[in-house]
Design a protein around this nucleic acid. Sequence first.
RNA 1: GGGCCCGUGGCUCAGGUGGUUAGAGCGCACGGCUGAUAACCGUGAGGCCCUGGGUUCGAAUCCCAGCGGGCCCA
Length: 1044
Amino acid sequence: MPIQEAEKSYRPHRIEEKVQSFWEERDIYERVKELREDRPRYSFLDGPPYCSGRIHLGTAWNKIMKDTYLRFKSMKGFNVRRQPGWDTHGLPIEHKVEGLLGVRSKKDIEDKIGIEEFVNKCREFAVENKAVMTGQFQRLGVWMDWDDPYVTFDPAYMESCWWTLKRAHEKDLLVRDLRVITWCPRCETALALAEIDYHDKEDPSIYVKFPVSGDTHILVWTTTPWTLPANMAVAVHPDFEYAYARLDGETYIMAEALVEKVLGEEAEILKRVKGTELEGLTYRHPLDDEVPLHREIEHRVILGDHVTLTEGTGCVHTAPGHGPEDFEIGKKYGLEVICPVDEAGIFTEEAGKYSGRFVKDADEDIIADLRSKGLLLKAGTISHRYGFCWRCKTPIIYLATEQWFLKITEIKDKMLRELDRVQWVPSWAGESRFRNWIENARDWTISRQRYWGIPIPIWICEECDSIHVVGSIDELRELAVEGELEGDFIHRPHVDRIVLECGECGGRMKRTPDVLDVWIDSGVAGWAALHYPSETELFREWFPYDFITEGHDQTRGWFYSQLGCGVIALDEVPYRRVLMHGFTLDEEGRKMSKSLGNVVEPEDVIEKYGADVLRFYLLWENKPWEDLKFVWDELRNVNKMFNILWNVYVFATTYMSLDRFQPGDHSAEDLSFRDEDRWILSRINSVALKVTEAIENLHFHRATREIHDFIVEDLSRWYIRLIRSRTWIERDDPDKLAAYHTLYTVLKTLIVTLSPMAPHVCEDIYQNLVRGAEPDSPESIHMLDWILDEGAVDSQLEADMDIVREIIEACARARDTARYKLRWPVREMVVVSEDEGVLKAAESLKNVIAEQANAKSIKTSTEFPDMKIIARPNPATLGPRLRQDIPLVMRELEGADGSAVKAALDSDGEFTVETDGKKFKLTSEDIVFETELPENIVSAQFDGGSVFIDTELTPEIMSEAMARELVRRIQDMRKDLDLDVEASIEVSVKCSEEFRELTEPQREFIENEVRASTLSFDYSELEYTKEWKISDENLIISIKPAKV
RNA sequence: GGGCCCGUGGCUCAGGUGGUUAGAGCGCACGGCUGAUAACCGUGAGGCCCUGGGUUCGAAUCCCAGCGGGCCCA
């Protein structure tokens, strides 16, 4: 089918719907894959979005960047792997499902729902969301293997994860240990550092007296009164000065530096000691009545370098059961670890009086008890940063528990070395930010006391305590002596019932009941998605990955978990290049959140502007690695660009279809190309080159801006304007065909260049324009190879055209100052410049200038030759000499021809004025020359020169001007009638005799311009009549469509 | 307290390796066009390029310090 005239306006929804169903019906995505199956591989790993709801703008941005880059890579001739992933396990889903089922605790889950049912619900929830989100991504036009994603609950995936744990065990990096870890009392599970969010929180701030003897106390500060029942010691810094400070009849031991701040100016310092001197000092636990177990324990002062003077008293309450540092120092001093708190954050029997209370609720009781015992110096509140569970937003607590750890601290150096193999965009993301995170990394708590997750594949012998880590499903089948091995038996609770036989003693081995931290799930994606090591071929082909990209939140998330897991399992980092991108924020730069009511859904944007505009906007707005403020107003600008692109396309197809243009019908040699044709071809290829580089560098904002400027500035505002008149030429004129040919080539290159970012509209244009013109071209634009013709680039021509555009703009300014319409031609325009380059440019593109300036002739010069020169007397020299005769000379000079005066001075060295019988000889010193524009000349400056335009209205000019005015009005009337561009009309005009005499000589021009079959100045009313006023002329025009 | 990022007209942003008079778009003011038209074009006003030092012939750009905002971690 030849090129069809395009729809008049850009309708993104229609286009996108049409294109997406075309892709689906014709299976285009799969066929693009097949097409490039044998090309060099380019491997990409999708960071799996979490299946807990609908996608948000940030997720959309993420996938759009991926899609743009991968479509580009594909068109550059790579066999691209782009399998999407889904993160499906873990607390976030469990938490949501708890809400759906109306349960609030693990007890409820186990007793009321049952683990099996709960796990099934979690799976269902993930599957449902996965389907919804898939649809959302597809609507954005994201091309991935949607029918073949990797899913973390897939047993084939999970067993790769087991294998990773087995590797860790083999390398002795997997340990079970009693440590103080972060804990969520609501979810009743351990949390990893990566699962903690920090927010400001109000907490008690109390100063407690720890009695030493008599009225002497150690003064201790804490914001967690509930940890006091676990206090075992007080830490002081060995090097600090400590004071015995006296206030209100009591003595306090505390850091001297903090005495005034805490006790005030009245405090009197009795004695100073070094921290070391306090070591071993014993005190009575302040709650030993309430928590009786402390009566049996000796509490004393210990030394610790972690003590600071920034806040508190320099005497640090130490509870090895509730603080990681306390735990470490406690180990050193052999302190007993007391942790009288259960999984739900409830005090146990050990906590005596407080037993049964939720720890945070016990704060008040403890404060009250201390106060009544006279052991509270002061109490207030403090607002500080505190950690919260990332899912349920409950403040975390620290508990000493037995957990499974990956010993990251032992592989940290290797991880840092591996980091050097990765290229980061921007470079600081890896070199500074990520490196810093790794340097501070601690051992990774990987066990979770939950249900919906990858079960930890560790079986422990009930008899001899030896452990076995299962690395695959087959291994489990082999070793199992009890339990079901049908269906999805590797999730809880089925897997819990599988019993192995101990290889050491033959005893029964039962699984450790925990599931894995969900961050491990995605951390192993690099090989689990390829089912390695069960299958090896895909792994050999695609591992490691050439590229990943995620938001900066993944520094501590997926970038990290992959690196850690990669080093453990395979001794290498699984990715080679990372783009760390930003977040999407609202207009004020705040995070989008439901509570703020500022969430913009991708659907909202698509509904208003379509997916292409959203895509282009997100890539265009700012640098990918910076946070993006979403501003609705900015979308209008992008939308405008698409409208302009569409209008250009409509323009092209309107004329091409009218003339049944087929680029293949004409060889380039037969056509007469103009400079502007060569120019736009040069431009589009320059643009394509820059876009190629920008995308390769992941500078999407540069790529999109380059294209934006090309479409708006070069193509629409300039090239189309330049060729407009050529498209009106009748028949197969080589000049017109050259314009068509050029426009076709430019549009084809343009849509290829734009297609990775805006695939729908480009595909749509391709289907009509390119497939119409070249029926043998591939079925989809994405089957085309990237287009770039560097040979077409002519930088000199581009630079020259830039100058010409400035000249034309100056011309418009000059005409504007004289209120001289562009429609009216001018006799001459002179381009004046001292810059040879400017003059050369103007000379070589004279035709372009003449047409756009609507000037009969164009001249170039280093100065404006017709400048009127005015000679004025110089009073400084003449005054003293001529005195009262000055006015005479002045009058004479004003009447004289300035250029004659100048000529005389130049040739004779003097100029003689004769008046009233007197003669005055004037030298060049006596005369000051000024220049003035001659009448009818207007001028304007541009960068590098000026233009001078002769606006004299000669009869010829008037004739043409009036003819053009007439034409414009007739065109207007044609439009009122909504006539087809090629329809002929009859025209009759009623006007004055003078107007007729002016315009009738232009009859041919007028008839041609308005497609009039007849033009009569003997007025008779036709079908459509309108009165007009041109300058002072009142006239009536009547038209009707001519008979065909 | 530490690490990192950001700070350019009223708003949103560009400004590889330091180099003329710092650019767009939106908004504002004025004008124009009407054979791409529920569009389009032009002109203008509006900038101590966060502050202060330094390096340099020359700094929005490099260095140091500070201020403000953000992210991450203690």
